[in-house]
Design a binder for these strands. Structure first.
Lengths: 194, 194
DNA sequence: AACTTAACTGACCACTGGTTAATTAAAGGG
DNA sequence: CCCTTTAATTAACCAGTGGTCAGTTAAGTT
């Protein structure tokens, strides 16, 4: 019979933050589906059941990580909006920043907007809408109200979404497709008839 | 010891077509990830190992089904191009048909353009490009060459792709979003400045 | 000290895709 | 017809997944 010594001394106890840090690190390189609870546990040198004391399930664990993604995307938008540029150039930069975020943080983007997983999607239901609203407000602010309405902004968003979705699938780096990024941004700017 | 009687009489032998028919039926309602080899086998009342005599692996089995999806999409495009309509209206119908296909055959669309699966993606590498080329040719044919280039057509395609991707995720029916379909089609038509 | 709670382990479950030795029917050849 | 080879299938196996839980020990409380 193997000796089981489950509860560890206080200074060795697994903390929620340790789990999150390890999961995040693995997630960034392997994606949601590429990271198993067992992989996280073995990286932490604990049994995989120990994770379930701290998190209800895999979706809950990764929900904490995905909210970081939404914060990052919002921060990118904020930073772009704070640039000293004329409206049209700034708008173009907003589009480019969105595409750049999606490609550079593809595993985040996937879990934020693409993955169909019942448990995960139950948890993530407000954040994508909020993220879109922030985007829409920014775009509306930079446009002439006579030239743009909500439907058009929504179409712009879907076009950006399509760009990111396609290139996440194809796996190319941002540097490889920068020309295409610029071209798509130009297409969308032109569609607004500014 | 249970009696094993593996090879069945000729008239009861499992045929490749039977597997494909059952897999397709399950796939249409449950999607690629929702259908296991064991589910297909139990539906056919055979052992799941029997499928591997006929198909190398799950990806190969479903590759046969996904090619049907590409054929269907091409057929939709063809049918739309055969309509007696002026160029702009026909172009708009092409866009609508694409979005309609994606929403109505969402599990096909997912496996054709969205799913990241190494084995499946090894098999499916020409078809999406071919499908896009057919689309691009049709669009180019309906447009004024002075007003459109390959980059713009590509952006149109990505915009349609984004629309479908988003609404596949949200799970709404075509009827529920028909207004949005029309609105997005109008956005794209207007972007061409016809 | 005794009791309760917290934190964890190892084994379990059901499920997944894929593999393989054994088994039987079918096909081929003498 | 008989024997051999090939085809088609099964049941058991493997390794992996997310999740569960009785048992064990440390920590906390009285």
């Amino acid at each position: 019979m193997l000796k089981i010594s489950p509860r560890k001394p206080v200074d060795q106890q697994l903390e929620r933050k340790d789990i999150l840090d390890t999961a995040r690190e693995l997630f960034v390189s392997e994606g949601y589906r590429g990271v198993s609870m067992r992989l996280i546990a073995s990286s932490l040198k604990v049994s995989h059941g120990a994770i379930y004391y701290h998190f209800k399930n895999k979706a809950s664990l990764f929900y904490a990580i995905v909210t970081e993604g939404f914060l990052s995307l919002d921060k990118e938008l904020e930073n772009t909006m704070a640039m000293e540029l004329n409206n049209e150039t700034k708008l173009r930069e907003v589009f480019i920043a969105y595409m750049k975020f999606g490609i550079n943080y593809s595993n985040y983007y996937e879990i934020m907007f693409l993955i169909k997983d019942d448990e995960l999607n139950t948890l993530i239901h407000q954040e994508p809408n909020q993220s879109y609203e922030n985007f829409a407000k920014a775009v509306y602010q930079l446009c002439d109200p006579q030239k743009v309405n909500l439907q058009r902004i929504w179409s712009i968003f879907l076009s950006l979404h399509g760009f990111v979705t396609h290139y996440i699938k194809s796996g190319q780096s941002f540097d490889e497709i920068e020309g295409l990024v610029n071209s798509h941004a130009d297409f969308l700017i032109k569609s607004l008839e500014l």
